[in-house]
Write a protein that binds this DNA or RNA. Structure first.
Length: 304
DNA sequence: ACCCAGGCGGGCG
DNA sequence: CGCCCGCATGGG
């Protein structure tokens, strides 16, 4: 494994934020939950972006950020704004989706939770691993893959040496055997991961998805092995910022059935139709508040 | 010992 | 289409 060593290159800045809550955002099972590192008090975190390590700390309405790596100030600022969805107009979004008491309460409880924007490949890998799995284990598996297959970087920061590994590339995973991957606890997902890595490094251009409309993009993502309806929506929401995507997992299905259909069973397709009709272009935000609220309060068991 | 976890692919009627 | 099954693994 080659290693890159750089001299101290630290860029930092600060910005004012409103209706933003770093802890809720990072704890709501988005990609940053899986590959980022939250600070003990929940007010700060670090994550890797390309070949840089970025640290973000929230102090009320101020967001401090700094990076170790080859990234310039303006680019870093844009990265932070993009990553944490700080360009989203929350007043407008809340007004649009808070049309009932249940949603109002979820928004009130977790105000400032944002949809993060992440690299499509990184998002795809995280959510292929997420299937039939739990958040804690997903996190462990993703971090294990980063630790084993990510390129190592080293910086001198205030006399101390800071080391981290960037997110593994499709190429780096494509060349591993499924047995290698299995050793990281990925289980039956090993062949999905290997095929995904190979396709993304050889034939499937994740970039081209950007220009396509929602259903076409989803259809193409679902052509990947191990990417079904739910994972495709996660990739579209967290990897491409398609806020109309409504990932429908078991939690969301139960919650929607309980709150909006008097407990009657609905198919995934019916739930999608309902979400589009009710929440339209911001269905992804509605989904994230429903999901986080349900998971934190363990509503899954209550509704079963 | 069980049960479940941000599902998916394949096979069947 | 809808339904059912198996699937690796570790924590509660």
């Amino acid at each position: 494994m080659d290693r890159r060593v750089y001299a101290s290159v630290i860029v930092m800045g600060q910005m004012r934020v409103t209706t933003f809550n770093l802890a809720h955002t990072v704890e709501s099972a988005q990609p940053l939950t899986f590959f980022g590192d939250e600070r003990g008090d929940g007010k700060g975190m670090t994550y890797t972006h390309k070949n840089s390590m970025i640290e973000v700390v929230q102090k009320g309405s101020l967001l401090d950020y700094r990076a170790y790596g080859n990234i310039k100030g303006p680019e870093l600022r844009n990265e932070v704004i993009m990553r944490f969805g700080l360009g989203d107009d929350m007043a407008r979004i809340y007004k649009s989706i808070a049309t009932d008491a249940f949603m109002k309460k979820a928004i009130d409880s977790y105000s400032g939770l944002r949809i993060t924007r992440n690299d499509p490949w990184e998002t795809a890998l995280c959510f292929v691993i997420s299937q039939f799995n739990n958040v804690k284990r997903i996190r462990g598996i993703v971090k294990g893959l980063v630790a084993s297959y990510g390129e190592e970087h080293s910086f001198l920061a205030g006399g101390a040496q800071l080391r981290f590994r960037s997110f593994p590339t499709p190429e780096s995973l494509a060349e591993r055997s499924t047995d290698d991957l299995m050793r990281h606890g990925v289980g039956f997902r090993a062949r999905y991961i290997k095929k995904l890595a190979r396709e993304c490094s050889e034939s499937f251009d994740l970039k081209r998805i950007e220009g396509e409309d929602y259903s076409k993009a989803k259809e193409e993502l679902m052509s990947l092995d191990g990417v079904g309806d739910k994972v495709a929506d996660c990739i579209l929401l967290f990897g491409y910022g398609r806020l109309e995507a409504f990932p429908t997992d078991t939690w969301i299905k139960r919650i929607v059935e309980h709150v909006y259909f008097k407990g009657r069973k609905r198919s995934i397709r019916e739930i999608h139709e309902f979400a589009e009709e009710r929440w339209g272009g911001y269905a992804g935000y509605a989904q994230q508040y429903l999901f986080h609220n349900a998971r934190i309060n363990k509503l899954g068991k209550v509704l079963r």
